[in-house]
Deep mutational scan, measured.
Amino acid sequence: CHSECLGNCSQPDDPTKCVACRNFYLDGRCVETCPPPYYHFQDWRCVNFSFCQDLHHKCKNSRRQGCHQYVIHNNKCIPECPSGYTMNSSNLLCTPCLGPCPKVCHLLEGEKTIDSVTSAQELRGCTVINGSLIINIRGGNNLAAELEANLGLIEEISGYLKIRRSYALVSLSFFRKLRLIRGETLEIGNYSFYALDNQNLRQLWDWSKHNLTITQGKLFFHYNPKLCLSEIHKMEEVSGTKGRQERNDIALKTNGDQASCENELLKFSYIRTSFDKILLRWEPYWPPDFRDLLGFMLFYKEAPYQNVTEFDGQDACGSNSWTVVDIDPPLRSNDPKSQNHPGWLMRGLKPWTQYAIFVKTLVTFSDERRTYGAKSDIIYVQTDATNPSVPLDPISVSNSSSQIILKWKPPSDPNGNITHYLVFWERQAEDSELFELDYCLKGLKLPSRTWSPPFESEDSQKHNQSEYEDSAGECCSCPKTDSQILKELEESSFRKTFEDYLHNVVFVPRKT
């Protein structure tokens, strides 16, 4: 048989008469490798580009789960590009990614509803959504962080984005990388972005840091009482949809009607710091009717980097990364020049730590249904340095008659930039024990000054392991946590139920 035959053949030295091919099969003959313009397919066939392209389009058009959109890589027609490569849609070739590779997620039936953290986790790592997304989240724990972890990498949506009755959302900033909504599939009414009845939605994105392009379709905003109209108009300008909307697409009466839409800028007039305090004062603000001013709200939190936005980490279910302080308005003076500047002394802060701070007014709604208010920009203030805590785990070892090696770990709280350490030492008198000992005694162990690591005695271990207080009263049991108490109650309830079950099964009433 021919060298490319495997198993047997019907005619000697003829690659077209093989029972099976050793390498690849091409047009009725066995070959060692697939010549151009053919590609290896499933490690035994040679196919042309049209064959591989037909497989790709067949799966793409069917949208069946589990099928493969075949691509070409290293002269092979394979189910998908290997790690580190992405497909070129024009020629199906796998090309190296520039940075992290995109991950295209194809949605069944063309859309997916995100109504819980669990459903959001199914899209973790996706960068391109081939379909439409509907966000409908009523509640949950730590929602802002969970949504950002699972949806934060999405850069492109081919269909539309719909935010509907998501009472738990305060902001859409968890879509931190969303840059493009194509609108290839539109919501009824030709809408590519749809926001309806979101009672706590206050911000779409921080438009000073976020760009969003909507290729096709219109915007729809109705019944978002805490979303200011200025935020919607800003989205029109940034996304390129200005002029597409009709009169009733953006409701003037049901958007922002319960919001404090600040239209003035508060400026800080005085800032002073110490290692654990920050004193702030800002310019006074009074609405047209000074009785509408209820006070100020001061927001602050630790910020290692200057990239904080107002609604980071917030949701309507209680999660809030900001510390909020309510401040009463100052006494009002008739003389504008003698107006008191409101302020606040922030206490209990960490030394040498940068804080993000902003302040906003708290006002009631005027009778004319106009909203007044003022808010400052987010500023960054760093507390002063102070003395560091003591170095940890000092170790001293003498390696000769004239040297001592000293080692330690950095302090747990540096409280500033540590530039150097101060080492103090003092000579001590020799131990009298060394002169009084009889060095001729056998088995004498000389006193040693070398360091030995501390260890816990058996008594201390027994005390720590004991669940009861000892007789001397030195140790006591740790208080039980809520989960331990709940577990004990469940076990007790189970024992009672099981005992009742045994009584009912074992003891049967005697027939009379």
Rank of each mutant, 00 (worst) to 15 (best):
P284I: 03
N307L: 13
G256R: 05
P342G: 02
N211A: 13
G243P: 01
D335Y: 15
N387I: 13
R179T: 11
G256Y: 05
R281V: 03
S119T: 04
F268I: 04
T364Q: 01
N340E: 15
R281L: 07
M235W: 03
T361F: 04
A303V: 14
E156G: 03
K209P: 04
T353L: 06
S166H: 02
S402N: 15
G295S: 06
G295Y: 02
F311P: 12
T113S: 12
N200Y: 11
C261E: 04
D249F: 07
Y160H: 12
S333R: 05
T273G: 03
Y223P: 00
S389T: 15
Y372A: 02
T383L: 04
R182I: 04
D384P: 08
D312R: 14
L293S: 04
S401E: 12
L349F: 01
W282Q: 00
L345M: 05
S402C: 03
R370D: 06
S239I: 12
Q339C: 14
N211D: 11
N141F: 10
T323Y: 01
N200W: 02
A251I: 08
I379W: 06
L229K: 10
Y300M: 12
E246L: 09
G189V: 13
P391R: 03
H233S: 12
E109K: 08
F220R: 13
Y223V: 12
E283P: 04
A259Y: 04
R179G: 10
L331Y: 05
P288S: 10
Q314F: 12
Q216H: 11
V238F: 09
H341Y: 09
S274E: 09
V238N: 07
T386R: 06
S269P: 01
L108E: 13
L212Q: 05
V359T: 02
S319C: 09
E264K: 03
P284Q: 09
M235G: 06
L227M: 09
I137N: 12
K209Q: 07
Q314Y: 03
N387R: 09
T213P: 02
V390L: 07
Y300R: 03
N248H: 02
P410L: 10
P342M: 10
V238R: 15
V363P: 10
E187Q: 08
C126L: 00
D335S: 14
W352N: 04
T118A: 03
S274G: 05
D328N: 11
G313P: 07
Q339F: 13
R138P: 11
Y355A: 02
R124P: 01
Y160E: 03
L294M: 14
L212H: 01
L153R: 08
S389Q: 04
P411V: 12
F290Y: 10
A195R: 00
E231V: 03
Y305R: 10
S400Y: 15
K234H: 13
Q203H: 03
T213K: 10
P394R: 06
K234T: 14
L178Q: 00
I157T: 01
D289L: 04
G140R: 10
P304V: 09
D257Y: 07
F220Q: 02
L212Y: 02
W322F: 09
S119I: 15
I395Q: 06
E155A: 06
F358K: 09
D276R: 01
Y300V: 06
S173C: 09
E187C: 12
Q199S: 05
E146P: 12
E302C: 10
Q354V: 04
I357N: 00
P342I: 11
F296S: 01
D115A: 05
E146L: 10
V397Q: 14
L201F: 10
E246N: 06
T213M: 08
L161R: 00
I114T: 01
P394C: 14
D206C: 08
S274I: 02
L362S: 05
T118G: 15
I163S: 02
G373E: 07
W322M: 04
L229I: 01
T118I: 06
S173R: 08
W205C: 02
W286V: 05
F358P: 00
G217V: 00
R247P: 08
K375V: 07
T241N: 11
D289V: 04
N255E: 03
